[in-house]
Design a protein around this nucleic acid. Structure first.
Lengths: 121, 121
DNA sequence: TCATATACCGAAAAATTATTCGGTACTTGA
DNA sequence: TCAAGTACCGAATAATTTTTCGGTATATGA
């Protein structure tokens, strides 16, 4: 595991279970990236999400493999090559991702105004 | 604001905008609690979510007020009384909460097995 | 030879979020 | 008078997550 948790995930709450799989900073974006089912190399994912530190994507992709949301294929070549592909389990989260995407687009302006003067202190 | 962020929320990504409103540990549960539209006092919310530290609920409720997901009514009485009620904006997130609730219930067993030996180290 | 690209990892630092503790102020009921 | 309940808040601490930095190893092209 990437991060050792001292407090276990609360499995009694279905809401928190679902959240725990997608709440990390880039996981929802990764799922959105892989949604078409086309396998992508880590370097491609990095380029699609340039604001994310490559190390975080590594870590979050590995967690998503552990959670069964994506699968990883390693090709024994040099220079090294590997690919990540979304699984059926990962695909089953896409409707949720879509609703969040839709909601975010619809309510954009409200928060654009609200947080326009964010980092001035 | 409760926690001062040094890195601003990425408003360019609708997904991350939506996530930022609900990803805190108890916000989705609070929305689920208030979904019926019945105003609830902080102490009632605390009792409904006994695993949450009261202080966190205070902070997250305040953030949700700032984000316009709930409204707070303070009654100028003694002992003090106040109530939180979900807004239309908050209600518009309920379909997303519902899908996550549904997904979590449907995929429970997989993760129950996977994380059964979590806190043994 | 040297820079760049590939994929990955460990360790430390920084940032964020959650928790605990103690305090304010006033009321009711034992 | 004292305990408990109400609603808060500040500050310190703990836990978690993200970021940065440097390193491994090999291949290609300038």
């Amino acid at each position: 595991m990437a991060y050792e948790k001292k407090i276990p995930v609360d499995l009694d709450c279905p809401l928190r279970l679902t959240m725990s799989l997608i709440e990390s900073k880039w996981k929802s974006c990764i799922l959105d990236e892989l949604r078409e089912g086309i396998p992508q190399r880590p370097s491609e994912i990095h380029r699609c999400l340039p604001e994310a530190a490559p190390r975080v994507l590594d870590i979050q992709l590995r967690e998503m493999v552990e959670d069964g949301l994506v699968v990883k294929t390693i090709y024994p070549e040099l220079p090294p090559r590997s690919e990540y592909r979304i699984t059926d389990l990962g695909l089953s989260l896409i409707p949720i991702i879509d609703m969040m995407l839709k909601w975010g687009k619809e309510h954009f302006e409200v928060f654009e105004k609200k947080y326009s003067g964010q980092s001035e202190d």
